[in-house]
Design a protein around this nucleic acid. Structure first.
Length: 764
DNA sequence: CTTATGGGCTTTTTT
DNA sequence: AGCCCATAAG
């Protein structure tokens, strides 16, 4: 195990008992160190698998850790505490739900559910949603929870804030009534459970001798406090992180935790891993140079001994469509040279950018896989089925109720629901439970809905989970609804996929033979001695869950990883955030434009630009052998064409490491136009001196006269544009919808405009 | 009262 | 391009 580690890595892995902070640069073998450390601790008998906890941020990272661990040591990892913060907190709360003040069947709200819940609360309390937009309330509540603060801990400096705190309180009461918790609540509840309940706290403090934390730079204030509580003064903390890869400040991550950790725990025990085993020289040096522009770093400089490698290739295109085209042409060239598709990644700053690229990949028949964005469990048809299931599992879940009470439509409109809501409030019960007490018009149709849910719930006692889901899809008339919909085919496929997912889930969890709604007698693995301890409060009871309940939890916590067609060799599309922790032979970073990357919203808050820069740093360091960076002069955004300048980050990359593949559009358009078409020669992937198949403009025809939408354009003609003013057409390319004009404007320099979109008036 | 339709408005990143 | 809301039609 040790022979594959370098001296620094080995030092970290075999550090004697005590706390340590490992500053692990990108590609420095961080995961390897973490898992080797776990294996070493177990193998040398310093701790049993049972006495070890490892925390990550993503489910993917947790799985990876377990996989690697079992390859190092043949041990049984079931029952080990390896998981995400949210996953482990969920586990804790399930085991001690009573002490945590939760109902046994509590379900988890994802971000969208939470927003819907807040909107409902806003409406029920006649809050002015102009003054208090639900999104803002949501942000406020989540920020409070990330800071560990309850409504009672907050001070009202002004009336607006006072109201926000009241709304936070009202929202909490609503969640309580409905038996649901949001992501932030998961962590805060678990923290409060440990801090208030001494026997439980001491039990876990005795149990865990070693706590390892991955991606420590991403922890927020509450998570750090939770870790400290869990560790007590006995456990050893081993934190691995990289301040240069801190990209989650927007959701409360506090890089300052690293410095605090060094002060509180690690003291002298700080180990730097600076040798990079991933990227070649030019790529790594570009990343180093870029991140130099940030202030207040803990300091670290990555190096490699794998040689200079290839230059970073930058290409500037006229539009987002052309950018996509260029990228896809390049991708095809890479594939033609034998590069596996899964080793090619296309990264972007925001999910909206994926559309154009997907479109192009699709039309070229290239298999690709989009990560993140619209995740499987977040699709509307899936959420609908899940809402039916949730309602069956928990009649108090008003969020679920409102989602499906009239979907597909069954004659229960807003008015009926409002009446029902009034009645429910009067009687202090949930919407579904209030139905039998309803009088008047709406009573009949709502009663039918109530019966529908009850029938489904009784089927849960007989059918397995996959069977149950099929029945729900049918009986809810979702099936008929999507069959009737012209665009429903894909949704139906997804519903089938949900049934498949349930089959897989039920098998993995050992629920296969059990009816969906049945709670197993005993739960393997987790029962342990925990509750047999004499100092455990008697009220604490293990919370076994039905297959249905477990599946719903699974759907909320692991919405991210759509395991569908995971094995296929496909081009990888994802946001830069989603790419963290991954690596590829060839990487495209797209949309290097001011306003997009760095994103315009980041310009406001202090530190925003630096976070964007770290994001760029993360993106660059994903590449092993070849890195492309692209940008588009114009981009369709919100249905409007927007024009942007080159990203400042491009200027921060040293010239000796980069190579511009396209013309650099400057204020002298003739020059840039002249160079187009002739410049795309260079090293091919493996053999030298082979030219690329792709041309930046896809071999478009150049003409001097073009007609688009009945309007004639010719080179040399004067035109007027609403935004750019007057200019002269320098060049015309393409035809029809693809027709473009390169125009030299008097005021703003040269621009390439799509003639089908841009409004141009002729000027004499 | 419900449902369908069209217009206005928005959009960072995620457990 | 999609979501929410107002408005008009059943």
């Amino acid at each position: 195990m040790m022979d594959r580690l370098n001296p620094e890595q080995r030092a970290a892995v075999t550090l004697p008992s005590g706390h340590a902070l490992v500053l692990a640069g990108a590609g420095s073998g961080k995961t390897s160190v973490l898992t080797s450390r776990m294996a070493w601790l177990i193998q040398t008998g310093q701790v049993s698998p049972h006495g070890l906890a490892a925390v990550t941020f993503t489910n993917k990272a947790a799985r990876e850790m377990l996989t690697r661990l079992t390859s190092l040591l043949p041990i049984d990892t079931r029952g080990m505490w390896v998981g995400t913060f949210h996953g482990l907190c969920n586990r804790l709360l399930r085991m001690h739900y009573r002490d945590a003040g939760l109902v046994q069947t509590f379900q988890i709200l994802d971000t969208a559910d939470q927003l819907a819940s807040i909107k409902r609360m806003v409406k029920a309390n006649n809050v002015d949603d102009e003054k208090f937009p639900p999104k803002e309330i949501q942000k406020f509540i989540n920020a409070c929870k990330e800071d560990g603060q309850r409504p009672g801990d907050l001070e009202a400096h002004d009336p607006h804030r006072r109201r926000l705190i009241e709304l936070y309180q009202l929202y909490q009461e609503q969640c309580e009534r409905e038996g649901v918790v949001d992501f932030g609540e998961l962590l805060l509840r678990a923290y409060e459970l440990l801090s208030r309940n001494a026997p439980i706290r001491e039990h876990y403090q005795r149990r865990f001798k070693h706590i390892l934390v991955d991606e420590f730079q991403d922890t927020n204030v509450l998570q750090y406090r939770w870790l400290r509580l869990l560790a007590g003064d006995q456990a050893c903390m081993f934190a691995v992180g990289d301040d240069d890869q801190s990209i989650y400040a927007f959701r409360g991550a506090n890089v300052g935790n690293m410095a605090d950790f060094e002060r509180d725990y690690a003291r002298g025990n700080v180990i730097r891993l600076e040798q990079n085993y991933r990227s070649c020289g030019h790529i790594l040096d570009s990343a180093n140079a870029l991140i130099e522009n940030n202030s207040g770093r803990l300091g670290k400089n990555l190096w490699t001994d794998s040689g200079e490698g290839e230059l970073v290739r930058i290409s500037e295109l006229a539009s987002d469509a052309l950018e996509a085209q260029w990228i896809v042409d390049e991708v095809r060239a890479l594939i033609a040279e034998g590069k596996p598709r899964r080793e090619i990644a296309i990264l972007y700053r925001s999910n909206a950018q994926s559309r154009v690229i997907e479109h192009r990949l699709f039309s070229q028949g290239l298999p690709y896989k989009v990560y993140g964005g619209h995740r499987f469990f977040e699709r509307q048809e899936i959420k609908h089925v899940l809402a039916y299931l949730r309602l069956m599992d928990n009649a108090d879940d008003d969020t679920a109720f409102l989602r499906v009470v009239n979907f597909p439509t069954r004659g229960i409109g807003a008015r009926s629901v409002e009446q029902l809501a009034d009645l429910a409030r009067e009687r202090g019960t949930s919407l579904l439970r209030a139905i039998p007490y309803l009088q008047g018009r709406a009573a009949a149709s709502l009663m039918r809905f109530s019966n529908l849910i009850q029938d489904m719930a009784s089927q849960a006692q007989i059918l397995s989970l996959p069977e149950l889901i099929e029945h729900v899809v049918h009986d809810s008339t979702l099936l008929a609804h999507y069959q009737a919909d012209r665009e429903g085919a894909e949704r139906l496929e997804n519903l089938q996929e949900l049934v498949n997912a349930a089959t897989v889930f039920v098998g993995e969890e050992g629920f296969a033979e059990l009816p969906a709604g049945r709670v197993p007698e005993a739960v393997a693995g987790e029962s342990e001695q925990a509750m047999q301890n004499p100092d455990q409060p008697a009220a604490s009871v293990l919370a076994p869950m039905s297959p249905l309940g477990s599946f719903l939890t699974h759907a909320s916590l692991e919405a991210g990883d759509n395991q569908a067609q995971a094995g296929q060799d496909a081009i990888q599309l994802m946001t830069i955030h989603a790419a963290k922790g991954l690596e590829f032979d060839a990487v495209f970073i797209t949309g290097l434009e001011e306003g997009l990357f760095p994103h315009e919203n980041s310009l406001f808050d202090p530190g925003g630009i630096e976070e964007e820069r770290r994001l760029m740093y993360v993106a660059i360091t994903r590449a092993r052998q070849r890195l492309y960076i692209t940008l588009a002069q114009s981009r369709m955004l919100h249905g409007q064409t927007r024009y942007a300048m080159r990203s400042r980050f491009l200027e921060e990359l040293p010239e000796q490491h980069i190579k511009w593949l396209s013309a650099r559009y400057t204020s002298t358009p003739m020059q840039s136009e002249a160079s187009s078409g002739a410049f795309r020669r260079g090293q091919s992937w493996e053999s030298k001196d082979k030219s690329y198949s792709a041309q930046p403009y896809g071999g478009r025809s150049h003409t001097s006269v073009l007609e688009v939408n009945g309007q004639t354009f010719r080179v040399g003609q004067g035109v007027h544009h609403n935004r750019f003013g007057e200019g002269t057409i320098i060049n015309l390319t393409g035809q029809g919808d693809d027709a473009q004009a390169l125009i030299q404007f008097r005021e703003v320099g040269s621009k390439t405009l799509a003639l089908a979109i841009a409004k141009l008036d002729p000027v004499s």
